[in-house]
Design a protein around this nucleic acid. Structure first.
Length: 957
RNA sequence: GGAUGCUUAGCUCAGUUUGGUUAGAGCAUCUGCCUUACAAGCAGAGGGUCACAGGUUCGAGUCCUGUAGCAUCCACCA
């Protein structure tokens, strides 16, 4: 059998994947008689690259997909990529600026979009290449892109329908504005960061000689954003506040501007906080916006798109209509200043005018745009919104009543919390890369929504002379991805795939996008997809939520921290220098590079070794417990690489012993005890692994596979078979039976483990399946049947007998180790006081025992037989002894026995305490009491033996 | 401020839903072995008052209450 000595995955993984893909192994069977199983891959950013989170989630999905495919299900894994609006546009803009020193405006909209498409063509293959390396068995023939024709059609359809149903509207509202990217972003894209700042206390002089209760001619306003006072529309105090009761309804003079603004009473002003008196800037603060609405205040927008002070404020009435009732005057000194420069300047001026009472340090959490990285600015703009509050209701119900199940269930709470208080979703973005909003405006600003411009004329019965202009904005990326499960299956057409594979079976994703994506997918899908009976269809029945993969110390992996691990590097390895240059390339803060270099060199002094895809996947599975974050552990990966090597070598052993001849299924009578035992354990393992997959416990899947292969098949069974195969006293028929069983179990193990470790199992399966006639027409394990426990029998007798042999072997090995008898020394242990059954078991299976302990014989003697100086160890209610004369000294042995005795005595005490407890005996279930009794009895027998042994020992010289 | 999760061996984690013999795994450590599949290995060993304090129970790592620390999410922050 030609199979190399060491596991070298790089020799076969790529080749196998290519063969699978060429053969079309990943396509569904489209057999409607079979159960359907489908997963929609969360579409990665088209120009991105694979990170640990992808590797983790795709491993889980692939494991499920391969399992169901092997079960014979009609299995679809729908894949594709996302255009990732902001992220992609930013990358391309940065690239163009760096390489050609041009902005997108230099190109113009169309030319710029062309460049983005070009970039997508160039780099879009990266992530799919990496997915292939990971063994991801998606149906590549159905690969989609969120901006391809079909999906764009779905987006258009959804937008128009929702608009016609009044579930999408356009409105002037306060939005989160990113002044760097110059676009609106949704609430979710805002990240609050704690920053050190200041609180400025500013005097607003009272007009008309009014005074406060304590006789001051001003009110003191505390603010963290002094520059926004240019847009103040009022000052608010609490209606209950005695300090200000006299000034309510009066006016103050806006510092630096001179405009008169009212003092209003509003509960928003908290008497306990600050000075109890708060400035109201409706166009630049969300709370103030609400206060403004309540008091019909005007809204003054003082900022430009890039957050500079305007020359004159835009003034709107409380309904958002432009008004000239209020002056939008802004002092010349501040015009055109960037927002923070304006702040400094204004604070100086306030100080000079004696209007600044004091400045205090203040800890505040400031909103930042998660993409642009600069503080966001609440801005009054026209944007498009989805009435999430309406769509959210059925979406909430679907999870509450169990049509959609979260795994782990605790994530449902997070979902409820958000869905219960759902804000309308701002879907327009002032970008160029994305789905352009299908809305047109005439010269009067009337809105027309349709699939295209032609349709606008017919739909709205417009005369062709009406000039239309299309809305320049594009849709939030998540708008198109919220349609992902059905748009990829051909909606709005009524396709076979939709009928067959929707709802999808399970969604595997990170908790960080439950709101961004999962919730919105549920909302959109339930609105547009209906079951035959008209009830809303959910996008998936189960949501499996994964945790984050962090580094060894529990830090998030991020480019800026320089602690990112690339899954491909763990598969194929990387040398130290390449790793360092990879981690320090294109740093946003170049000063960090040196630090990262040092740390990387320290942590990976010789780079990262290649471990192969299977080891990586196995590790990811083993770590996948309960949706918790995972601290990545290189050692664990190494351990499982070793496991792959173990499987490899066990296979070598099997194949060396069987050759490439085919073997016939043996008669049951010819099976050895060991054969029957391992087949029985195989059955148990398949049961365990199968039920673990079904309950999404991938850590258990990995553990059961590991435990069976290493601790049963390799450590015990393979060793037993050596005694059979190398013996001259065993018939050829029986040897053949054992050879067959060796292959039979190995072949089944390969199928059992294939969903987790596809490449290694395919390789070994190719060699083993033909031997026992299990090769299939397609010639790949992908289409082999998943092993079923019912194919094998439980053999309790064989298990019990082998268990006793194992115990005996372990006791002898223990004695050896404790006596420091080297393995090469042949010994002849004595088995004193064994039952007839026990004696027979050891006699009958002496060849097994001999092989595993290097003994020449076992001497059986009756209980109580006096023996020369021996070391002993209890075995059930008997004992195993080794003549000790050459091996040990008396004191050591006494010490050892005394320690053992103490242990036994402690056991006896605990059992006795229980059994003497009236309450325990009367209340505990019979089974437990029986157990305690048995424990007591066994320990008493053993104590007797040990005591006797001690006595004998002490007598001797 | 609200919510959730976590705290178990030196490290990384299972086990807690449904209470029941002596709490498990991998890695690391120690001892002895190159035994014809595997030194990426084999055989053994040591190591845990299950965060803390109460309670319920015959019995608590597991259930209840409280405390502390850590983490995350949401809200607010004049």
């Amino acid at each position: 059998m030609e199979i190399e000595k060491t596991y070298a995955p790089e020799n076969f993984e790529n080749e196998i994947y290519q063969k699978w893909e060429q053969q079309g192994c990943f396509k569904p069977s489209y057999d409607s008689a079979k159960e359907a199983f489908s997963i929609a891959l969360p579409p990665p950013n088209v120009t991105g690259s694979l990170h640990m989170g992808h590797a983790f989630q795709q491993t889980i999905m692939d494991t499920l997909i391969r399992y169901h495919r092997m079960k014979g299900d009609n299995t679809l894994w729908q894949c594709g990529t996302d255009h990732a609006g902001i992220a992609t546009q930013m990358v391309v803009e940065r690239k163009l600026l760096k390489e050609e020193n041009k902005t997108r405006h230099d190109f113009g909209r169309e030319a710029f979009i062309d460049r983005v498409w070009k970039w997508k063509e160039e780099s879009g293959g990266n992530i799919t290449k990496q997915m292939r390396r990971l063994g991801t068995s998606v149906d590549w023939s159905r690969e989609r892109f969120t901006m391809d024709e079909g999906l764009s059609r779905a987006v258009l359809e959804v937008f128009v329908k929702l608009y016609d149903e009044d579930l999408i509207y356009r409105g002037k509202r306060l939005v989160n504005w990113d002044p760097k990217l110059r676009t609106a972003i949704s609430d979710l894209e805002v990240e609050n960061r704690d920053v050190k700042g200041f609180m400025w206390y500013i005097k607003y002089m009272l007009a008309d000689g009014i005074k406060t209760a304590d006789g001051k001619d001003y009110v003191l306003v505390a603010t963290t954003r002094p520059e926004t006072l240019l847009g103040d529309a009022a000052v608010a105090v609490n209606p209950q506040d005695p300090r200000y009761k006299d000034v309510i309804g009066k006016e103050v003079i806006l510092p630096l501007v001179g405009r008169r603004i009212p003092v209003v009473a509003d509960i928003h002003a908290d008497m306990e906080t600050g000075t109890g008196c708060v400035k109201i800037t409706p166009a630049h603060d969300f709370n103030d916006y609400a206060v403004g609405k309540r008091h019909q205040l005007p809204m003054l927008n003082i900022l430009t798109e890039d957050a500079r002070i305007r020359d004159e404020a835009e003034v709107f009435d409380t309904n958002g209509e432009i008004t000239d009732k209020i002056s939008g005057y802004i002092p010349e000194a501040y015009r055109g200043l960037e927002r923070f420069a304006a702040r400094d300047r204004m604070v100086e001026d306030l100080k000079a005018n004696g209007l600044l009472d004091r400045i205090e340090d203040h800890q505040l959490s400031q909103p930042f745009g998660d993409r642009g990285g600069v503080p966001i600015e609440p801005m009054l703009t026209d944007q498009w919104y989805v009435r999430a509050s309406v769509l959210g209701k059925p979406a909430l119900e679907a999870v509450k009543d169990g049509r959609i199940r979260f795994v782990p269930a605790s994530y449902a709470n997070m979902y409820y919390a958000w869905m219960n208080d759902l804000q309308d979703w701002c879907i327009s973005r002032q970008l160029w890369w994305g789905h352009r909003i299908p809305a047109w405006y005439d010269e009067k600003g009337n809105i027309y929504v349709a699939h295209n411009e032609d349709e606008v004329y017919s739909k709205y019965h417009l005369d062709r002379s009406v000039k239309l202009e299309r809305d320049p904005d594009v849709l939030d990326t998540w708008f198109s991805s919220s349609l992902w499960t059905f748009s990829t299956l051909g909606w709005p057409d009524d396709t076979v795939e939709l009928k067959m594979f929707h709802p999808t079976s399970i969604l595997v994703t990170g908790f960080d996008i439950i709101f961004f994506w999962v919730a919105r997918m549920i909302m959109m899908t339930m609105h547009f997809m209906k079951n035959p009976d008209g009830t809303p269809q959910v996008p998936f029945k189960t949501v499996y939520v994964t945790g984050l993969i962090r580094d060894e110390e529990g830090n998030k992996m991020s480019k800026s921290k320089g602690n990112v691990l690339d899954p491909l590097d763990m598969i194929d390895g990387i040398d130290k220098d390449s790793l360092i240059s990879k981690r320090t390339a294109n740093m946003m803060q170049p000063q960090m590079a040196e630090k990262i270099k040092k740390r990387t060199a320290k942590q990976f002094p010789s780079g990262i070794n290649a471990h192969g895809t299977d080891a990586l996947r196995f590790t990811l599975c083993a770590l996948a417990s309960n949706g918790r974050d995972i601290n990545w552990d290189m050692k664990r990966l190494e351990g499982y690489r070793n496991f792959c090597n173990k499987i490899w070598n066990a296979s070598r052993f099997v194949l060396m012993n069987t050759g490439e001849i085919t073997l016939a299924k043996p008669l049951r009578d010819n099976l050895s005890l060991a054969d029957r035992y391992i087949l029985s354990k195989l059955k148990e393992s398949i049961e365990n692994v199968t039920s673990s997959i079904q309950s999404y416990r991938f850590d258990q899947v990995a553990n059961y596979i590991y435990d069976f292969i290493w601790n049963e098949y390799c450590d015990w069974y393979l060793e037993f078979t050596k005694a059979i195969l190398n013996s001259e006293n065993v018939s050829n028929a029986k040897k053949a039976a054992t050879s067959y069983t060796l292959v039979e179990v190995l072949e089944a193990i390969m199928r059992m483990a294939h969903p987790v470790m596809p490449f290694l199992t395919e390789t070994i399966w190719q060699k083993t399946a033909p031997i026992i006639g299990k090769m299939n027409d397609s010639g790949t394990i992908i289409n082999a049947a998943y092993p079923q426990a019912s194919e094998w029998e439980k053999d309790i007798k064989a298990e019990e007998e082998i268990n006793f042999i194992k115990e005996f072997v372990t006791v002898v090995r223990n004695l050896r180790a404790e006596m420091k008898i080297v393995p090469s020394t042949v010994i002849a242990p004595i088995f004193r006081g064994a039952s007839d059954l026990e004696e027979e078991c050891i006699r009958k299976n002496f060849s097994f025992v001999k092989n595993l302990t290097n003994i020449e014989s076992v001497n059986f003697v009756k209980a109580g037989t006096e023996l020369p100086m021996c070391a002993s160890k209890p075995l059930r209610s008997a004992e195993v002894l080794v003549a000790m004369k050459d091996f040990i000294n008396k004191e050591d042995e006494i010490k050892r026995l005394t320690a053992m005795m103490e242990k036994i005595k402690a056991n006896i005490r605990s059992a006795e305490a229980k059994l003497h407890n009236e309450a325990f005996v009367s209340k505990a279930p019979a089974k437990i009491i029986e157990g305690a009794r048995a424990q007591l009895q066994l320990n008493e027998t053993q104590l007797e033996k040990v005591e006797q042994q001690l006595k004998e020992l002490e007598k001797m010289e």
